[in-house]
């Protein structure tokens, strides 16, 4: 083991070349958020993953981001346990009614500026589970979504591309959403949130994979609030 570990120092890591930011996503993100207040977080983002009722396929792929091949940490991204430490909520699954409150509370516990990334087909609009009595349908029904990563499940490379777009974006001045106290309830947020465009088509056998793309969605929020207000 020692030999292998020391050998690792000499070997080149088997990492894939860093995926560039997903095309289009960054421009979208910037266009949507620039009018909000200017906070620059730099090349460092902490991610709190939330499973809001997914089939755990997305979780498998998200976990894979930590392995040597994708090596999430080289971009300055890392997963954290407490939402208090997080900047990004990476949410998967069609929000089940049973997880609705928990998702909202976690969102509320996260300090501003923060982003919500909807990851996977179900997270966008409920996916195959849309219409069930148990499912609220789409993350944006509960919290505002800033970035959407489709696919069932999206491959690690696709998730990584989305997250890299986000970090590129956060490294640029004038990126993040405002900071301010808020007291809304789940219902308020849901009302505030405009129905974002849905991904065309369901998830079929052949389009399920490789068709993953990153879409940016508007985050319609209340009136802009400046830092420190």
């Amino acid at each position: 083991m020692l030999v292998r570990i020391l050998g690792n120092l000499l070997r080149r890591p088997p990492v894939i070349p860093g995926p560039g930011p997903a095309p289009g996503a960054e421009a979208e993100l910037a266009a949507r958020l620039d009018r909000l207040s200017h906070v620059r977080l730099g090349r460092s983002l902490a991610i709190r993953q939330i499973d809001a009722g997914s089939c755990n396929g997305c979780e498998l792929e998200i976990s894979a981001l930590g392995n040597r091949k994708y090596d999430l940490e080289r971009f300055g991204l890392r997963f954290v346990t407490s939402p208090r430490h997080a900047d990004v909520l990476l949410v998967t699954g069609p929000v089940t009614h049973n997880m609705r409150e928990a998702l909202y509370r976690t969102w509320q516990a996260t300090p501003d500026p923060k982003w919500v990334v909807a990851c996977g087909a179900c997270a966008l609009d409920g996916g195959v589970f849309r219409g069930s009595y148990g499912v609220a349908g789409g993350i944006d029904q509960v919290v505002p979504v800033h970035l959407r990563i489709s696919g069932c499940p999206p491959s690690p490379a696709e998730i990584l591309a989305g997250l890299v777009a986000l970090i590129e974006h956060s490294a640029r001045p004038g990126s993040a959403v405002g900071v301010g106290p808020r007291e809304e309830s789940v219902a308020d947020v849901a009302q505030e949130t405009v129905e974002p465009p849905r991904v065309a088509g369901g998830v079929g056998i052949h389009e399920a994979h490789g068709a993953g793309q990153v879409l940016a969605a508007p985050a319609e929020r209340g009136p802009d609030r400046d830092l420190g207000s």
């Binding site: 499973d51 009722g53 699954g93 928990a102 069930s132 148990g134």
Partner: peptide
């Protein structure tokens, strides 16, 4: 448990 209940049996 039950937080991930999506209602597959009904769907």
């Amino acid at each position: 448990l039950g937080f991930a209940h999506r209602g597959i049996e009904s769907l």
